[in-house]
Design a protein around this nucleic acid. Structure first.
Length: 866
DNA sequence: CCGTCCCGCCATGCG
DNA sequence: CGCATGGCGGGACGG
């Protein structure tokens, strides 16, 4: 009753769970060996407890549950149990019903959310709908980690960490205070560090979902974001050891610095423990102690894969610049991946669209959320299983067909290189050899990237994803600038299984690398992606609302767009520049809350965009100038450095976002469903056409489309669409147009102009131009950044929050949009390319790390110290 | 005592 | 209001 502590809790009558401690042990053990685990899982699925089953359990669960000692109830253990239920590399992608899991594991839902949130941050799961998640296992892990690392690098977390460490050390000796401030200034690093930080958001993988929902509530998802950041810290730090203290501080980054430090810090630490427990279960980190001068502090060491699929730019850098080890690829891709979730709303003139977009995006997400989250009783879980099923056959068929076609096509063009084989795999699913976690992405791992040809790179990338979803990369011959570009086709496989969600097929994205060749290492890559995700969104939208109205309005808003942006940019840039130059605001101070912040200026996204871009540039520049290690970032755009545009934009993009894997099956699923069901969706399709998303982007996009595909197709049905894609894909090689397209996307070129990549110089204008393109990209959905709570931006003042929403995503996400795959795809592709992007670039940075502080750290594995 | 972190209240959003 | 999600922090547990 009523003691303070838990009141009555344990309800659960459920016998399901095996819960005895013993069972837990078993679970752990099983967890230890994946194989076993996998086997079990399948079985378990329904039954649940899997192994636990055996003995005791059924008997009196209730009691048992309660009895468990605190440890036995730990999140880490719970997570183990959870993980034991699913294979690391699921073929078919399971779906997970929250309620079922909670019941089976005999825990409260709340706890499951904790786990899901972190898994989601790693893209090991993605929210499908309301109570359901899709299990991706580790198939996307490598990719995700690679992206996170890039983002982390962009954020200069390494430096930040060092600073913090130093600071701490210093503090000990002297009070804090005085010097610090000075230091700040002095310590340039900070800047570097700071800059990086922009705000964070979720990093999403392209396909993967933008998950639903979540995105909106500003504050929400903090756990996810935090988790990603935390992981980034590991990936970026040299020793791969991160102390809780440091991590907490960085994560706090937030605004009000001083304030509640304490409380905040405390809370943050608590959360970090939660995250750490899950990560530990995943065996990505282990607890250690860092012995610094003062004493030992709890810390965690990364024991997960270190090598990520990164890719370097083959070409330019390929041989030459290979490996600075640390540096991964370029940010661009990352950027692409990242999304800004909302940002501030307002839009200024230029971007009318923006606002609308924002709305769209938001609305989309929200819609999605709504849809997903409609109140329902948890109980329903059971349903879930059944729910998907129907669609399928047809969809599957279509998908299959499409896939085949795609494969063929892909093979043709690509035939030469790439992975055609992969494509071939087609059969329905390709199997991917799953790599063990350790292996991770194909061999790349070596820290240094081995330079590989683009193709390979692409390949690798594709590979990774492949597991989860088939992605087929195709290389096309390049013509122009010599940059090769690769096209990724997403294959879809029908699922054999009944439940199969993933049937669909999808097309993926095209990427190109363009190398201007001129500047040292620059290359731009663009990816086009036709992704399922879009579809997915569509479907969902449809269901809920097919409202054309929305779409329309969106479209309207969208109308304006890019051109203006360009103009604006330059000005902005300068402004920013000036501002920056003059004083460096401490980024931290800034707290952008997108929603709140809406900038008065309102300027639309564009502005924001610009600003960001600008900032970025500035940062870059600054960095470059003063830069320490980072100098490597070539990209510095503007004056500071002469770079190729490509870099610029790359950099320009927002730093962090939630990364989403491209291939998200989910989307497909949805589509399928929709199509299959079609019921209500009627409108949708059509709507889709109109769909804002589509609309918004469309004009340019279409035009730009490299292939010149004709996008439109009346049929809203996804399957059909698919074919279309293919066609597009098929289309001959990318022509200049493509390039332009790409460039635009990249931001190299202003949207308006189709000019070639190379031309401009660093003038601000150029920058502006670039930025604008960026915008475009973002719009396309490339980047969504949702500013979370803490994001210090550099820019203060005007500081508008910048938020970008990617159109694509939005579109995709948006329920309404369901209809039109084509467009969506189109859009998507561009932005999405994260993968591709990753692959491409050749930016080299010198990655040097200065780890001064670090040496201090001693890590002792304390895991099991005694 | 202190590091860890479970538990569940309560806010947020939606229909 | 009920439901779905999760932020958050009190205070318990274990060493």
């Amino acid at each position: 009753m009523g003691p303070l502590t838990t009141p009555t809790k344990r309800r659960e009558v459920r016998s399901v769970d095996p819960w005895t401690p013993t069972s837990n042990l078993k679970m752990l053990i099983s967890a230890a060996s994946p194989d076993i685990r996998n086997r079990e899982k399948e079985l378990c699925l329904d039954h649940e407890g899997g192994e636990a089953h055996d003995t005791t359990q059924d008997t009196k669960l209730g009691e048992e549950a309660e009895k468990l000692s605190r440890k036995e109830k730990s999140l880490g253990l719970l997570c183990h149990r959870f993980l034991a239920r699913y294979p690391d590399y699921p073929d078919p992608a399971h779906d997970i019903c929250l309620d079922d899991v909670a019941t089976q594991l005999n825990v409260e839902r709340r706890r499951i959310y904790d786990i899901m949130n972190v898994l989601e941050s790693l893209h090991m799961v993605s929210r499908l709908v309301k109570n359901r998640y899709t299990w991706h296992g580790r198939s996307k892990l490598a990719q995700t980690l690679a992206i996170l690392r890039m983002v982390g690098e962009e954020q200069h977390y390494r430096q930040q960490m060092q600073q913090i460490r130093q600071r701490c050390a210093e503090k000990e000796f002297d009070f804090y205070g005085d010097e610090k401030e000075n230091d700040e200034t002095v310590v340039v690093d900070l800047d570097g560090g700071e800059q990086g930080q922009k705000e964070m958001s979720f990093v999403e993988l392209p396909g993967v979902e933008f998950n639903a929902v979540s995105v909106n509530s500003r504050k929400d998802k903090s756990l996810r974001v935090m988790s990603q950041k935390f992981v980034m810290l590991f990936l970026v730090s040299d020793p791969h050891v991160v102390s809780l203290e440091v991590a907490a501080k960085i994560l706090i980054g937030e605004d009000p610095a001083a304030d509640q430090d304490k409380n905040k810090f405390k809370t943050k630490v608590r959360r970090l423990y939660d995250i750490a427990n899950v990560l530990r279960s995943l065996k990505l980190i282990e607890k250690v102690h860092v012995t610094e001068e003062r004493g030992r502090k709890p810390a965690f060491k990364w024991i997960g894969p270190v090598e990520l699929p990164t890719i370097e730019d083959p070409k330019s850098s390929a041989s030459s610049r290979p490996s600075t080890a640390s540096r991964v690829c370029e940010p661009v891709s990352v950027e692409n991946c990242s999304k800004n979730l909302f940002s501030s709303p307002g839009g200024k003139r230029g971007f009318t669209r923006h606002p609308s977009l924002m709305k769209m995006a938001k609305s989309i997400q929200e819609d999605r959320r709504k849809i997903n989250s409609a109140p329902s009783s948890p109980a329903k879980s059971a349903l879930s299983d059944s729910s998907n099923h129907d669609i399928p056959s047809k969809m599957a068929q279509l998908a299959a067909i499409c896939k085949i076609q795609l494969d063929q096509q892909s093979s043709e063009p690509a035939a030469n290189k790439q992975e055609t084989h992969r494509g071939k795999a087609k059969g329905q699913r390709e199997e991917v050899p799953v790599q063990t976690p350790t292996q991770e992405p194909t061999g790349d791992t070596t820290p240094h990237l081995t330079p590989r040809p683009l193709q390979q790179a692409a390949h690798s990338m594709s590979y990774v994803p492949g597991q989860g979803s088939p992605l087929i990369p195709v290389l096309l011959p390049q013509q122009r600038s010599g940059g090769p570009y690769a096209v990724f086709l997403h294959t879809v496989r029908p699922n054999p299984l009944s439940r199969p969600q993933p049937t669909s097929l999808a097309v993926r994205s095209m990427t190109f690398e363009e190398k201007t060749g001129q500047s040292p290492g620059q290359s731009g890559s663009v990816a086009l992606d036709l992704s399922p995700s879009a579809t997915k969104r569509l479907s969902s939208d449809t269901n809920t609302e097919g409202s054309p109205s929305k779409a329309k309005r969106v479209g309207a808003s969208l109308k304006d767009t890019s051109p203006k942006q360009c103009d604006v940019l330059p000005g902005r840039l300068k402004a920013r520049h000036g501002g920056l130059g003059s004083s460096r605001p401490s980024p931290r101070a800034l707290h952008l809350d997108p929603e709140f912040i809406k900038t008065p200026g309102g300027a639309a996204l564009a502005n924001q965009f610009l600003e960001q871009s600008v900032e970025t540039f500035l940062e870059t520049e600054e960095r470059g100038a003063s830069s320490d290690s980072e100098a490597g970032l070539t990209p510095v755009p503007a004056r500071a450095v002469p770079l190729t545009p490509g870099h610029l934009h790359t950099e320009t993009l927002v730093p962090a976002g939630y990364l989403i894997p491209m291939h998200s099956l989910v989307g497909y699923k949805d589509m399928q469903v929709q199509s299959g069901e079609n019921k209500k969706s009627t409108t949708p399709t059509y709507n889709i056409f109109h769909t804002p998303t589509a609309g918004s982007r469309p004009p340019h996009a279409l035009e730009i489309t490299p292939t010149g595909l004709s996008l439109h197709r009346p049929a809203g049905v996804s399957p059909q669409t698919t074919p279309a894609y293919r066609a597009h894909m098929q289309s001959p090689s990318p022509s200049p147009a493509i390039f332009n397209f790409t460039l635009q996307n990249l931001g190299l070129i202003s949207a308006g102009s189709g000019s070639g990549p190379g031309g401009q110089h660093q003038t601000p204008e150029r920058v502006a131009g670039m930025s604008s393109p960026l915008l475009g990209m973002q719009q396309r959905g490339m980047v969504f950044v949702k500013p979370m709570s803490s994001a210090p931006l550099q820019q203060p003042g005007p500081g508008q929050p910048f938020t970008f929403i990617s159109m694509q995503q939005t579109m995709m996400t948006t329920p309404k949009g369901a209809g039109h795959p084509q467009q969506s795809f189109f859009h998507t592709p561009v932005s999405l390319s994260p993968l591709t992007a990753m692959v491409t670039h050749g930016r080299h940075t010198t990655a040097k790390n200065a780890n001064i502080t670090q040496r201090k750290l001693d890590v002792s594995a304390e895991d099991s110290p005694p």
